[in-house]
Design a protein around this nucleic acid. Structure first.
Lengths: 303, 303
DNA sequence: TGAAGCTGATAGCTTCAGCCTATCATTGTT
DNA sequence: AACAATGATAGGCTGAAGCTATCAGCTTCA
């Protein structure tokens, strides 16, 4: 195996065409440089330099190889510079997983500021159900995830609570509860609520609400996205609960539905930032958490 | 400075995500590999791997660097392979200098065969006057030159005589000598011959011929190329002598002029192949010489 | 719950690659 | 003929890189 040292020495000689000057340039003695060149020629099985006692010339092969050597040395120095630059926090590539019911409504609040403060950060975003997110985090396919109610009993994970996101009641036009400005949970007694599938961090808190309020899940329909849920409500299929960030971003402007807050204590889901405890970039991830926390809209409750 | 060994070790671990298997793959012990990785992380100032006792993951930076490391290793292995392949004779790039009055008429005779037998040889061609060719050869800008009457007293050079190229008399239509099938040198007595400038290996032998035959250089005209020389003769400006390869390739078909050979011993120029004695590729150059010599047309005399 | 089996890290030792200084051998210059 | 410059060689030292043996943390399974 040839070494970078050999290539470095060779590149120096190829440029200076003079052993002593080349040796001086890379701060070694002339014999040491001679030895490196000899070894390179030996292991390549090719004469790179044409030595007259009086001067040095590159052989034809030497010319080609000198060019390649310089390219390689440049790549190495790029790599080193890249690694050095990567020590600045929140730069490089970060693979962030996020719930489908959360990402599109939360990220716009902090991504512009993130880009402003950490222009070298490249975010790879992946939306998945919570179980998949956890799998991908622990298997190393993701570095960081945003999810609801992250598991607290797994000491491989670091979980940073970010905020509580309240749920809002979403009713068809002309619903009996639409007349009230805000609802108590008990107002939903007897209602059939349309729920999401598992995995988006919403089904569970709404089911809990049902249990507490004495309502139940709509028997015939189960939605697969917040938008379809909203549209199902708009067609009069029934009522539901939607998270505050989505309501704020999408539902308030929809005149086909009625949106009402709950009285305190409002039902809510908890959003956490999670990473592997062993991750080398924990400090950066805490920075990430702080940045997200400081750019939350007023519809959610910081923790 | 990081080393290729470190990159190689890192690339192996990045692929296997397992120290022992990676160590086995590159045939070192696991502790040795651990040490290499540690040193790489140390010198880059960056954690590349996330070590759980149970398994290994790449950090985000590690992923980027692994890709770069693989690129670099690939370049190195390409370089090695290139150098290895370059040991086959007459491959790679060869910078050949040649006289302007020779190249276009000689090269077509052997270049096709050269390409067939040595498909990996890339020829860089340069046409120049003889003094410039010698300068460029000794300064290392050329590897090999084809010229006339190369200097025999310079023991920095290896000179291989290739062939003698006879000169032919070239006359305007209706010239008094056009009636003869072939000329004796003395037939030119009293003629004014149009000559080339210095440097193309033709002026000197024709001047010698003038001296021997009792003719002289045309006082008013001196040509700068064989084609212009031919055209000057065609307009009746005077007679001249042109080399056999040119005559064979270009002048025989020209009906505006008359071309006549000389009786033996015909005036001629000697063509040599020349390289620096110190050149590492001397054996290949001898091969080159043989190939050229074995593809000469019958109009020249092999040596 | 405790033993067994992985994992990567560490310790102690050996070898050899890489470097230095000093000097040689060749060649071109004065 | 003496001198200067250049790359190669010799001898000796240091430290990097490798090995074997072992440790320490974790998982698995009886």
């Amino acid at each position: 195996m040839i070494t970078l040292r050999q290539l470095q020495c060779f590149a120096a000689v190829a440029e200076c065409l003079h052993f002593r000057r080349a040796a001086e340039r890379i701060n070694i003695s002339q014999p040491a440089l001679s030895a490196q060149i000899s070894q390179l020629e030996e292991s390549l099985g090719v004469l790179l330099l044409e030595r007259t006692r009086r001067r040095v010339l590159l052989t034809p092969i030497g010319r080609d190889l000198a060019e390649r050597a310089n390219d390689i040395l440049k790549s190495v120095s790029d790599l080193e510079e890249f690694a050095h630059g990567a020590r600045t926090p929140l730069s490089g590539t970060l693979r962030l997983g996020v719930l489908r019911t959360l990402g599109p409504y939360l990220l716009p609040h902090f991504l512009p500021e993130m880009r402003r403060r950490h222009p070298d950060l490249k975010l790879y975003l992946r939306e998945d159900p919570d179980d998949r997110l956890l799998d991908e985090l622990t298997s190393g396919q993701l570095d960081l995830i945003l999810m609801a109610s992250a598991p607290r009993n797994d000491d491989h994970l670091t979980v940073v609570p970010l905020f509580r996101e309240p749920l809002w009641a979403v009713l068809p036009l002309g619903h009996r509860l639409a007349a009230k400005d805000s609802l108590a949970q008990a107002d939903l007694a007897g209602e059939s609520l349309i729920l999401l599938e598992f995995g988006d961090g919403l089904r569970e808190p709404v089911l809990a609400l049902c249990h507490a309020a004495g309502s139940r899940e709509h028997a015939d329909f189960r939605a697969t996205s917040l938008d379809s849920l909203r549209q199902m409500v708009a067609t009069g299929l029934g009522a539901t609960c939607l998270p505050a960030l989505y309501v704020d971003a999408e539902a308030l402007a929809d005149e086909q539905i009625v949106v009402r807050p709950f009285d305190a204590p409002a039902p809510a889901r908890s959003i956490d930032l999670v990473w592997r405890r062993t991750s080398a970039r924990s400090p950066e991830f805490r920075l990430f958490a702080e940045l997200v926390a400081s750019h939350l809209p007023t519809v959610v409750t910081p923790l």
